[in-house]
Design a protein around this nucleic acid. Sequence first.
DNA 1: CTACGTGCAAATGCTTTGCAAGCCC
DNA 2: GGGCTTGCAAAGCATTTGCACGTAG
Lengths: 148, 148
Amino acid sequence: MHISADDLVDVLRSEGLRITNPRRLVCTVIAERHSDHLTAAAIFDAVSTRSDGDLDIATVYRTLDVLEQAGAIKHGHIGHGPTVYHLAYEADHQHLVCSSCGSTVSIPTRDLRSFIDVITERTGFVPQVEHFALSGLCADCAKKSTTE
Amino acid sequence: MHISADDLVDVLRSEGLRITNPRRLVCTVIAERHSDHLTAAAIFDAVSTRSDGDLDIATVYRTLDVLEQAGAIKHGHIGHGPTVYHLAYEADHQHLVCSSCGSTVSIPTRDLRSFIDVITERTGFVPQVEHFALSGLCADCAKKSTTE
DNA sequence: CTACGTGCAAATGCTTTGCAAGCCC
DNA sequence: GGGCTTGCAAAGCATTTGCACGTAG
C-alpha cells in the first residue's frame, strides 16, 4: 500500500481545505519519501531544490499541522532532534535511540503488546509507544560499557 | 534516604571541582525539593527568591551539567516541556504523559522489567525507560475518547 | 597566582505568530 | 469577493556559548 501525493491532497480537500501549490509540494515530498522520518527542515529543503518549489518554512509547519489534524500524518520525537513526521499508517513501530552513539533501531509496536497491557492494567493509562522514542544503549554501546 | 545539599556539594568536591556560592545554591534547591521534577528555570526561580540568592540561568545549566557528570543527578524529558532534573537515585520510575490533558502518572521501572527484556532480546538494545516519558491517554481521557 | 567559574549578552535551533498581501473556491 | 493561505519578519522558548572579569584553592 502506497499513498500518493494526490491521496494526501484529497485528504485536505475532503476536510474542506484549500488546495494550494505549497500544500501540494509538501504532500508530494511526503508521498515520495514516505518511508523516511521527515523533519520540517528536510521537507523544506526537498521542496526548495525542486524547480517548481518555493515556499516558506512556516508554511511547511502549517501544512504539517493541517495534515496531522486531518489524520493523514503523525509526528514523533526521536531523541533530542527536531520533530519527525510520517504517514499515519506507518506509525506502527517504536524507536530506540542510543544515548551513546545516537544510532536508532525500530521495534514493531505489536511486539510490545504485553508491555502496553501491563501499563494499562496498573495505571489505566493507554500508551502510544510510537510517539516518543525510547532512550538506551544500542547492542554495541552496551557491550562496550560492560567491557570497560 | 535523604540527600542533603552538603552531600551534593561533597560530590562536587570529590571530583576536584570548586565550591562556589552559585553551586551551593543550586545544590540546596535540589536537596530541598528532591522529590520534584525540577527544571532549570524552576531552580533559577527558587534561588532568585532567596535572600542569599543571585545567579545566572546559564550558571544553573552549567551546574546541572557538572552534577550530572559527577553522577549525582539525572535529567529526563516529560512530554514537550523543558528538561527535568532529579537526584540520580530517584530515577527509578517511568513517566506517562497524557497527550490529551497533559496529566502525568508514574510507574516503577521494575514493573517494566519484562518489557525491557523483550526489547533487549529482539534488538540487543538496553532501554533506559526513565529517560523519556511515554505518551498516551490517561484513564480519564481514554474513557472519554471511547465514549464519544 | 592562575586555572576554573561566573555574569552578561548574544547566538543557537526549532517552532510559532502577527500582519498585510494574495489567491482558492 | 470573502476568507482561507501565504510570505516575511519578528518573537518565543530552552539552551548554549564567547568573553572578560572574578575568585577558590
